[in-house]
Design a binder for these strands. Structure first.
Length: 278
DNA sequence: GTCCAGGATCGGA
DNA sequence: TCCGATCATGGA
């Protein structure tokens, strides 16, 4: 499958946008993504070639869905109020970022882990869980573990992932999903408020993590997670509250704000988010 | 060695 | 309802 640049698709920005922790650069300009049992390679500059299992995936249903290629993100950007110069700048800077349609279960565990961790540390923990408890895929790679696989572990067995105090949260979440108390499939059709409350019933899931799972796992584009970066931006630019004008796609705007805030911050990240072309 | 990270929870005011 | 302390660990 070939994705043209005009599709508002920038794999480098997506990889650095803090929503997907198993999408990484491998070599010059190439990226590798593990999603479900799919191993994708994204290569090329300008037009991007998406390959599943080393083969061109053609009009791949999985990629079309995963990268949300049928949604026009340029249209979202065009709807940003002209009076909001800061958001205009953020969307211009982050153009190419999309909200991926990731697995709700993986997002739930990943964002439980994310609390008080930086992105490299989150990636490391997710990879460790996958390597230890996930199904083997091609090339020595591993799928994210199933709820049943994690639910079967003890706290001691999870120790290598260095989850710290989050270990018990991860196990509790896994057991709720594996045991049927939390039916993520059924929640696909739940209203936003009901979905949010169901997620917050999981130990270790508060407002922010619930919103991340809603946005990145359930594609609820209204969900607006507020982490430390977003809160700083809201305080500095909006007197504490995101203004009206983007109803229905607030979460998409949140992602551009997050990316822009991190890229604009004083250097601490050794070029990981190096400003390009400026 | 220090500071901080895509926070949540609990106890006390 | 609000606020501060605390939680465990690794990356920068």
């Amino acid at each position: 499958m070939i994705v043209s640049p005009s599709a508002d698709f920038d794999i480098q920005k997506i990889a650095d946008s803090g929503q997907c922790f198993r999408l990484n650069a491998c070599g010059t300009g190439d990226y590798r993504l593990i999603a479900g049992t799919h191993v994708l390679r994204i290569s090329g500059q300008g037009a991007l070639a998406l390959k599943c299992a080393g083969r061109d995936c053609g009009a791949c249903t999985f990629c079309t869905d995963f990268f949300d290629l049928k949604t026009d993100y340029g249209a979202f950007i065009d709807r940003v109020p002209a009076r909001d110069a800061y958001l205009r700048a953020a969307t211009a800077y982050g153009r190419g970022i999309r909200i991926l349609r990731q697995d709700p279960w993986e997002m739930l565990i990943t964002f439980i882990i994310s609390q008080r961790k930086n992105i490299p540390a989150i990636k490391r923990a997710v990879e460790c869980l996958s390597t230890q408890f996930g199904r083997a895929l091609e090339g020595g790679l591993f799928a994210f573990p199933t709820p049943e696989a994690l639910a079967a572990q003890t706290e001691e067995q999870l120790a290598p992932a260095a989850l710290g105090y989050r270990t018990k949260y991860v196990l509790a979440a896994a057991r709720m999903v594996a045991g049927g108390q939390l039916d993520l499939c059924a929640l696909e059709s739940a209203p936003d408020a009901a979905l949010c409350e169901a997620l917050k019933a999981v130990p270790g899931v508060g407002e922010k993590v619930a919103k991340c799972v809603m946005l990145f796992g359930f594609h609820r584009l209204r969900a607006f997670p507020k982490d430390v970066w977003i809160n700083r931006t809201l305080q500095a630019q909006y007197e504490g509250e995101f203004p009206p004008g983007c109803e229905g796609f607030e979460g998409v705007m949140q992602q551009y704000l997050f990316y822009y805030a991190r890229a604009s911050a004083p250097r601490k990240k050794a070029g990981a988010t190096a400003l390009r072309g400026e």
